[in-house]
Every structure is written in C-alpha cells, then in structure tokens.
C-alpha cells in the first residue's frame, strides 16, 4: 500500500493512502475535536466540529471524512477554525433543549466536554426551544429527542455493529429527528435486541437507561471499541 506524506500543524507525518485527516492527526498526536465520529463505525461528517484548513483549498474540510493526499499542508487550530467551532457548538445548544442541570448525562456528556474545549461560556444564538418528544416505550431504555444532536452515532452502531438497524433519520432540515423502526414507538420495534449499544454510542443524554436519573448516565465507550476489535481481530478479552 502506498504511503502519503503531509504536514499537520507543522509536524511532518507519513500515513497509508486512504487514511483520513483525522486518523493522520491522531497519529501525529494532534487533537481535533469531534462529536459524530465514533471509533469502530463509519464516518458521516455530520457535526462539522472536526473542520480543518488545507492550504490551497479555500473551503474548510471535515477531517473525519477527508482522505489524506500527498503534500497536504493542514492547519487544525487557526483562529478562523476556533471561531467556527465555537459557533457550531453554540448552534447545537441553541437548536435543541439542553438543560444540563437536570440531564441524565450531566458531567458525562461529550457535548458539554466540547463546549468547555471550544470555550463556550454562553450561546450568542437565540435558543429555539423546539417542541420535541420523549419515547420511553422500550422496557430498558428511553430516548429524549430534546437532547439529540443528530450525530447519527446510534443509527450507525445499531446498523453496523449490532446489525439490527432500528434507527434512522426522519424528515428534513430543522424537523429532522431520529426515528425507530417504521416510525413506531421504540418498544414496539421487533428488530431491537435490547443490546444497549446505542446507549453507549450516544454522546449526549438523548439515549439513556431507564432508572438512571440526573448525572447518572456513565457511558462505556470503550465497550464499543472492544466489540469492534473483537470482531475484526478476534481478540475476545479486554
């Protein structure tokens, strides 16, 4: 396999053809904030948090879905990128209904974490306060659409790792929501094996275990990575 050489924030790095900028940055030890990226499932470029600047290209590119090319000169933390990242996170907060103080994921939420990372101390965008629902028809789990950022990690983990494809994205634009089965209550979807992978995949408090209350959702992301390595490399212990 051929190798590409490139620089990320001034650090020279060589990586195999077909790798993404995000993988290359990881290799180079350069942290890029992400939300919709999840190790072990495919990337879709939904959240735009991982945008980077590539010299000679006058638009910003999402690192998780852009393949490396020979001689690329990449900047990951310019003032422009910092500005856009903070706006992106503010928009995510203003779009849904995030009330961290009463949220099951408080203190364990990736959206909270990136808000701190990008330095968001308030949202400059007007909150929408959309009217969204909660589905607690499943015996063990619930989904609160108020906290959903439409990253589609649940959709991909259920489809690609569990093979059940319970979730999908319904509607368009601001009306988008995560839909279960054929727009049925989650508890009525026969395809769901109650494996709980979507609970661990969800970066926010949108999908949770019933019975967990404020700040009690403690995600186990490592479990998903373990499952994927187990399957791909036959390593069955962790």
């Amino acid at each position: 396999m051929s190798v590409k050489t490139l620089t990320i924030d001034g650090t020279a790095i060589a990586i195999e053809e077909g790798a993404t900028i995000l993988q290359a940055a990881k290799e180079a030890g350069v942290p890029i904030p992400t939300l919709c990226h999840l190790e072990g499932v495919s990337d879709v470029g939904a959240c735009r948090l991982c945008l980077v600047e590539v010299k000679g290209i006058n638009k910003l590119l999402p690192a998780c879905v852009t393949e490396v090319a020979e001689g690329m000169n990449i900047q990951t933390n310019t003032e422009k990128l910092q500005t856009y990242r903070r706006m992106t996170v503010e928009l995510l907060f203003a779009e849904g209904n995030h009330v961290c103080s009463v949220c099951v994921a408080n203190n364990n939420c990736e959206l909270q974490d990136v808000a701190v990372q990008v330095g968001m101390d308030h949202s400059r965008f007007t909150y929408r306060f959309p009217d969204r629902g909660v589905d607690i028809s499943h015996k063990q789990f619930g989904i609160d659409h108020n906290r959903c950022i439409l990253c589609t990690r649940c959709v991909r983990v259920c489809d690609e790792v569990e093979g059940a494809h319970v979730w999908d994205v319904a509607q368009r634009g601001a009306a988008c929501y995560i839909v279960s089965g054929l727009n049925q209550p989650w508890g009525e979807v026969d395809a769901c094996t109650s494996c709980g992978k979507c609970v661990d995949a969800c970066p926010t408090g949108a999908i949770f275990r019933k019975g967990d209350t404020t700040a009690e959702k403690v995600g186990d992301r490592a479990k998903l990575e373990f499952l994927v390595t187990a399957r791909e490399q036959q390593q069955w212990t962790r």
Binding site: F93, H98, V99, C100, S101, H122, S123, Y127, F129, D131
Partner: peptide, 18 residues
C-alpha cells in the same frame, strides 16, 4: 455578571417555553 445557568441559558425556568 450572568450568575449561573438560569441567567446564562435560561435553564429550567425556560422549560415552560416548550
């Protein structure tokens, strides 16, 4: 100084907006 989440985000009091 906006002091606390209710001042900064409208927080729980704003849940009636829905």
């Amino acid at each position: 100084i906006s002091f606390g989440d209710c001042a900064v985000t409208a927080n729980v009091p704003a849940m009636r907006n829905m």
